[in-house]
């Protein structure tokens, strides 16, 4: 995976970093990421992964651009209202970085397609807005041994954690009952509202986690949930452990 002269110039500020260098930049070029949800979280994550020079990016979203999206979903323009997000996001990525091979799929992630989407990816970013999709991605990523960067955002708050199958706990170790997660007063942001820039901050953190995992540098949020309260500017890290009885990743789960 060689870097062209243009790529060396484009990624110069990456290459000078001791943790990246030419070796790391070529690793990113050889990597692939699946981003589920090209919304408030997906927008900055997609922008930064594309700009960082990830080799292949697969964007999955079932929605079209709506006027109510524009305060946080910074991938989109007024002229794109009504257009499918996945394909619009692909055009944006192609305009930023022609060295990224980008695929766009307009679909809802469900039991029938999740395995195929996740298989073979270097990393998955969860930018979805439903509990069902989040737990589905967790299950599929654990089964396929693909790292998953989970995030959620609502009002002025956000959460990020990194699920590294075989290394740390999974989402269901933390939220034992997915049904209860759905009933949580932590409604979807369509009802509760969200500060657009908080989605931007959390989506950027997801991109950073994904890049760290791919490069094998730093201390990713494995077994730790970063909880951000933007109103008070409080960043807390809440540790959590693998549950042996976890039906997804636990040693007692009957595998």
């Amino acid at each position: 995976m060689e870097l062209s002269e243009q790529e060396v110039l484009r990624y110069a500020r990456h290459i000078v970093l001791p943790q990246i260098g030419g070796v790391g930049q070529r690793t990113l070029k050889g990597a692939s990421a699946l981003v589920v949800g090209a919304g408030g979280l997906g927008s900055p994550a997609i922008y930064y992964l594309a700009a960082a020079g990830i080799g292949a990016l697969h964007i999955v979203d079932n929605d079209v651009v709506d006027r109510t999206n524009l305060h946080r979903q910074i991938l989109y323009r007024m002229a794109e209202l009504g257009e499918p997000k996945a394909q619009t996001a692909r055009r944006r990525v192609e305009a930023i970085n022609p060295h990224v091979s980008v695929q766009a799929t307009r679909c809802r992630v469900d039991d029938t397609n999740v395995e195929g989407l996740v298989r073979g990816c270097s990393v998955v970013l969860d930018g979805s807005d439903t509990a069902g999709t989040k737990f589905l991605l967790n299950r599929a990523c654990v089964a396929a041994s693909v790292p998953l960067i989970y995030a959620g955002v609502i009002r002025f708050e956000g959460q990020v954690t990194t699920i590294a199958p075989g290394v740390g706990p999974c989402l269901q170790c933390l939220f034992a009952d997915p049904e209860a997660f759905d009933r949580d007063p932590l409604e979807t942001c369509s009802q509760a509202g969200v500060l657009g820039a908080v989605a931007g901050q959390i989506g950027s953190l997801q991109a950073i986690e994904a890049l760290k995992i791919l490069l094998g540098v730093g201390d990713p949020l494995i077994g730790r949930m970063l909880v951000v309260d933007a109103l008070d500017n409080r960043f807390r890290t809440v540790p959590f452990i693998q549950r042996p009885e976890c039906p997804v990743c636990g040693s007692e789960s009957g595998e």
Partner: peptide
């Protein structure tokens, strides 16, 4: 700078 260092670093690698 920093391209002179970038090329140096890539060669050293």
């Amino acid at each position: 700078c920093p391209m002179n260092f970038v090329y140096t670093k890539l060669k050293l690698e």
